[in-house]
Amino acid sequence: MAEHHDQHGAHGAGHDEHAGHHPNYKKIYFTLLGLLVVSVVGPVFGIVWVTLISAFGIALVKANLVIQNFMHLKWEKRIAKWFLTASLVLMALFVGGVSVDVLNHEGNNWENIAAQAAVERGLAAAAGEEVVEEEAAEPVDVGFNAPNMFNLVCASCHGAAGDGKGAAGLALDPRPANFTDPAFWAERDRARIVNVITNGGASVGRSPLMVGWSASFSAEQIEQLADYVETFRPGA
């Protein structure tokens, strides 16, 4: 059996070739502690570039000391260095490719309104200013008005006349509710209308296509919508 007997076990070939190269671990340990002190003290000066060097420059030095001496990468075969380097290079590639979209808040023909607003809000709060509830997070403020909102959002399925004959609703099964139908009102009360607008059709065993709107509208606004829906009630 032609096995590579010399190359296994605790003291295999991989070790033998760097036997005798062991660094003075104690010295490296105390160097690391010294560097730690420097990195903690660095920000005391309050100068940005000193902090950057003392924090990240020293982190690199420390990591390098640990990797080379404690992990013995200095004496490892080249192949291990290659694939560890490859993984780091890939991360640099990833950050490089993604930062154009994620780090920046505006670019060619686009801007990240929500992020810009979040930055402004946050900086204002940090400066101790009154936090103004920004409307910018909402893409457009068309003002709330129950009939308008019904026409904007609900009418595509329920129809502007509330008859369940909106363009998108024509092909749905089950059909969108017809608010002009007396049978519809026979078994429903206001609490149920509010509940369905808030939590969606699935919450009462009806079509899940009717989603809950609690994320978009306040309870007060949903009440107004329910009021508007009740205006379709025959004889109302």
């Binding site: 801007e111 309104i113 997070a137």
Partner: peptide
């Protein structure tokens, strides 16, 4: 994309 305004 929510939060963004993209032009075209």
């Amino acid at each position: 994309i929510p939060g963004r305004s993209i032009m075209g």
